[in-house]
Design a protein around this nucleic acid. Structure first.
Lengths: 121, 121
DNA sequence: CCACACCGATTGCATATCGCAAGCAGTTGT
DNA sequence: ACAACTGCTTGCGATATGCAATCGGTGTGG
């Protein structure tokens, strides 16, 4: 993304994270302790397609939300890690969880985590 | 959208708001004091297309984030208003503004509003 | 040494959504 | 009557998405 639609902070955040998958990937790395491509693809309930996951990982690295750590022992098992910018998305994800918990048909077991974070985990 | 990808609160929020325009519309109604179709289309910096705006307004009404108030004096000038659910998105928008202000090239004049909200406006 | 399972990632293809421009019918002000 | 304005629709090319199959490179067991 080269040109921005506007300089509004909310809009700029939307330009980076405003799609159906980017925050799912970040959520799984952040709270689900997933680092590798196959983990992110198969272990999450939503079922992201491999081409979409590859595209999102690439874009999130490009915009500085993730970085790729090579594993010298296992060259194929590169790990995707959160940058400081991504870690600072925690309050945003907490608010998203809190809103979804109150206004959408969230499943009880998955709501617990959101509730704990909301109360200050 | 009939079936949900998962019961995770974050995912459910993304299913409703995870696109480039829904939160822009809500932002303009919430903070920009815009109620009418033409206002939302022409007065915002990002420049939403009319068909996309029509689609988003319809969907946001369907999911219960907006409601349409008829104007008896001006039949053509229907006003779109926030529901209670949408008003409770304020903390989420505040967090989006805060993150964008810190990590994206936000313009100074538009950042002021975000900063004020962040500090508790 | 070699077959095989696994790794991240790519390709092809059908479908859905997007951005843009033009235009619509109904309503309002003069 | 007429022009300006209302919310909204249509056509169309470009782009994004979802799905399945597959790729070349890498580690492993026999």
């Amino acid at each position: 993304m080269d040109e921005h639609r506007s300089g509004c902070p909310i809009n700029l955040t939307l330009e980076v994270l405003g799609d159906r998958w980017s925050l799912i990937v970040i959520r799984d790395i952040m709270f689900g302790n997933r680092r590798h491509f196959r983990e992110l693809m198969t272990l999450s309930d939503e079922g992201i397609a491999s081409n979409v996951l590859a595209d999102r990982l690439k874009r999130l690295v490009e915009v500085g939300l993730l970085w790729k750590r090579d594993n010298p022992a296992h060259k194929q098992k590169a790990a995707y890690c959160l940058t400081e910018s991504a870690i600072e998305l925690v309050p945003l994800l907490v608010q998203m969880g809190a809103w979804g918990r109150r206004h959408m048909p969230a499943s009880p077991e998955l709501s617990v985590r959101a509730q704990l974070l909301e109360e200050g985990g």
